[in-house]
């Protein structure tokens, strides 16, 4: 933010920013509508619906992160520790998932 500090504080920039926020808000509204609209589309199986729904949600979330949370012009430091966080979350997901369903076992290992 501070690299071109003056730009980011000027009224023109802020006015533009305000407009962008409204537009992104609008996009998010529409995307929410789409999410609801496609929930019962027959995509072959429920897993496909889930994947699709999560895809839209991820896109929405990215918009919120990049525009609303100004991550798009944020400093590298934040990216650094956010990326570690993401890696660890994925680690938590994948590794404990594998703890339940091991690729070398044909069936679900009894979790109960």
């Amino acid at each position: 933010m501070s690299h071109d500090h003056h730009d980011h504080d000027s009224p023109e920039y802020l006015k533009k920013q305000s407009k962008i926020i409204w537009i992104v808000g609008g996009i998010l509204f529409v995307a929410t509508g789409i999410t609801v609209g496609v929930m019962d589309l027959d995509l072959g199986s429920r897993s496909m619906n889930i994947a699709f729904g999560m895809l839209i949600a991820t896109i929405k979330a990215s918009l919120v992160m990049l525009i609303f949370m100004h991550l798009k012009n944020e400093r590298g430091l934040i990216y650094k520790f956010l990326s570690f966080t993401i890696v660890f979350v994925i680690g938590l997901f994948v590794l404990s998932y594998l703890g339940f369903i091991d690729p070398l076992h044909s069936n679900l290992i009894s979790t109960k």
Binding site: T35, M39, N49, G53, M54, I56, A57, A61
Partner: peptide, 9 residues
């Protein structure tokens, strides 16, 4: 994320 996960899918 919660909305689709809990309400729709």
């Amino acid at each position: 994320f919660l909305f689709p996960l809990l309400y729709l899918l």
